[in-house]
Simulated assay, not measured.
Amino acid sequence: MPNKDRPQVERHPPKNGVGWLLNDQQGKVCSFTNANPTSHAQWVIVEPRPLRGGGQPVIRRMLRHNAIEALETMQKSGGWKRCQPRW
């Protein structure tokens, strides 16, 4: 099968609720990263930032299942797509 016909697969696919999203229309990027788990729950840090530097990031800690829901909702709402890490 020629290379152009092979599906593009990420070398290290992101885990659920962890990854990066990019919105070109709004000029923003958002990272979802694992935080230190506690004995009761797994946490994810959500950090949206402007693409062109400047501005303070708004860092939020979310439960893993809420972060997965937020990531999926952002992708379905339009404009947000997965991307490579930005910082």
Rank of each mutant, 00 (worst) to 15 (best):
D24I: 05
P7G: 07
M1K: 10
F32Q: 00
S77Q: 09
R60N: 13
R64V: 06
F32D: 00
N16Y: 07
E47Y: 00
F32V: 00
N66A: 10
Q84K: 15
Q56L: 14
S39Q: 11
L71D: 01
Q75I: 09
K81T: 15
R64L: 14
R86T: 12
R64Q: 15
D5I: 09
P50L: 15
A67M: 00
L22W: 08
A41R: 06
F32I: 01
S31P: 00
W80I: 03
V58I: 13
Q26R: 13
I68M: 11
S39V: 10
N3Q: 11
R61E: 12
E10H: 09
P50R: 13
E47D: 14
T33Y: 04
W43E: 01
R49N: 08
A35M: 06
K76M: 09
E72C: 09
M74H: 04
C30W: 01
G55V: 11
N66G: 05
G27C: 03
R82F: 05
S39L: 14
N36D: 10
I59M: 11
R86M: 14
Q8H: 09
P85V: 03
E10W: 12
N34D: 10
F32H: 00
W43S: 00
G27I: 05
N3P: 12
P37Y: 04
P7K: 14
Q25E: 15
R6H: 05
M1V: 13
R64K: 15
W87Q: 13
W43Q: 05
P50V: 11
A35E: 06
G55T: 09
S77R: 11
H40I: 05
H65S: 12
W80L: 02
P13T: 03
Q25W: 09
I45M: 12
V46M: 07
C83Y: 04
D24N: 12
R49Q: 15
Q26N: 07
P48G: 06
R82D: 04
Q56A: 13
